[in-house]
Design a protein around this nucleic acid. Structure first.
Length: 273
DNA sequence: ACGAGGTCCTGCGAGC
DNA sequence: TGCTCGCAGGACCTCG
């Protein structure tokens, strides 16, 4: 799915087109994406609301209105656009379409509908956000914070850094990449990761996420930016999607496994211990 | 507290 | 060509 860099990119792209706009009407095609709100309540709430600002929290896009927050977690295939004219694809996969007061339409597009839409009041938002760990690109995310999270867990280190309650926004791609860069075996028990390794992992998590934001994210299959373009980070990937290909550091063929949380893990036997 | 496995969905490419 | 099958960047659940 869109991970932190991809959601950040989508949010940045639609921000200038949504800020200050009023929602004139809304249409929801499938309610299976909703959490904690009914379709009619969402449509009623959105209609007439004005966008006050946009933000990202973990892998969620947050559209703050003068009523509540529209919180969209794009799942595997979610994407958001603001368009003057909708295409046939938008009509088919545009789960939520919101007409703006300038004639454009905000579309939340989601082929597989594994994404989630929430409509949260301040208390609901607080509860939601409190369940998520620190933002890796914030100053509050220090090597000590990562070390403490790892020390508490006997699960595989990869699973821990992908767990949103420990760390916000890291998904399968960037977890694989950061572990490779830090030279850590993804299946290593988290609490057995040394302080030095945790420090390295912290540094690589931060730099890879920042670099990927700069590159507008990684497009392997579905992901598109808020302007419909693919991202540019896929060319920078060291291990993800490169199973069987030579390690860029030592040349050994990269290994692939589904052993951790049934998610594809790619790593180098030689470089990651 | 952990791993394993299943659930929600649809599209796509591989392989027969 | 046309079919079935497995797989996909997430999050949540239950069970043992």
């Amino acid at each position: 799915m869109p991970e932190l860099p991809e959601v950040e990119t989508m949010v940045r792209d639609v921000t200038p087109l949504l800020s200050g706009r009023r929602f004139e009407s809304a249409r929801l095609s499938h309610r299976d994406v909703l959490d904690g709100v009914t379709g009619p309540a969402l449509v009623r709430g959105l209609t007439g609301a004005r966008v006050v600002g946009l933000a990202r929290r973990a892998k969620n896009a947050v559209i703050l209105t003068d009523r509540r927050r529209l919180v969209i977690q794009p799942g595997m295939t979610g994407a958001m656009f603001v368009k003057r004219r909708l295409t046939a694809d938008d009509a088919r996969y545009g789960v939520l379409q919101v007409r703006l007061d300038d004639g454009r339409t905000f579309v939340y597009h989601d082929v597989r509908r594994l994404g989630t839409i929430r409509w949260l009041d301040p208390a609901g938002w607080q509860r939601f956000s409190d369940r998520i760990g620190p933002e890796p690109l914030d100053a509050a995310f220090t090597p000590e914070v990562l070390r403490a999270a790892l020390a508490r867990s006997r699960a595989a280190v990869k699973k821990v850094i992908m767990d949103q309650k420990h760390l916000a926004g890291v998904g399968n791609i960037y977890a694989n990449e950061a572990l490779f860069l830090a030279g850590i075996d993804p299946s290593k028990e988290a609490r057995r990761v040394s302080a030095d390794q945790a420090g390295l992992l912290h540094r690589h998590l931060v730099t890879i996420l920042a670099d990927a934001v700069r590159a507008h994210g990684t497009t392997i299959r579905d992901y598109r930016t808020g302007t419909g373009e693919p991202g540019n980070f896929q060319g920078e990937l060291q291990v993800y999607d490169r199973e069987g290909q030579p390690c860029r550091r030592c040349g050994a063929p990269l290994a692939g496994t589904h052993g951790i949380d049934a998610r594809i893990t790619v790593f180098c036997y030689r470089c990651q211990r």
